[in-house]
């Protein structure tokens, strides 16, 4: 309900939804680099899989030779060969 109101306000005022709704913003550059803003922390970190928390669940990044090139409170930068990016809900779906 609360999110719907925020979404309508953001739409009406043409505000960026990642700011108003605190959503993750992911920028993929080719297959080798990824920048995620508004993440909520690392859940799992491995060479072939990185999972990080976002406002509405988790994001799974699958690939090979993955490294976190920069980790800051708002920003997460991943490099390596990225194969898939999956959004997983709180319920695991």
């Amino acid at each position: 309900m609360k999110n719907n109101v925020r979404k309508s306000i953001a739409g009406a005022l043409q505000l960026p939804s990642e700011v108003v709704l605190d959503q993750v913003r992911i920028i993929l550059t080719g297959q080798n680099s990824m920048l995620a803003e508004n993440h909520k922390g690392i859940i799992e970190y491995g060479r072939s899989k990185i999972v990080f928390r976002i406002n509405s669940g988790f994001v799974e990044v699958l690939g090979e030779g993955l490294t976190i090139s920069s980790l800051q409170s708002e920003e997460l930068s991943i490099s390596g060969e990225i194969i898939a990016v999956c959004f997983v809900g709180e319920d695991g779906r």
Binding site: G46, I68, S69, S70
Partner: peptide, 16 residues
Amino acid sequence: LNLSLTQGISLSNIVR
């Protein structure tokens, strides 16, 4: 890593 983030410590070139 997460505790470091909460303390405002930025890390880079993290390799497992």
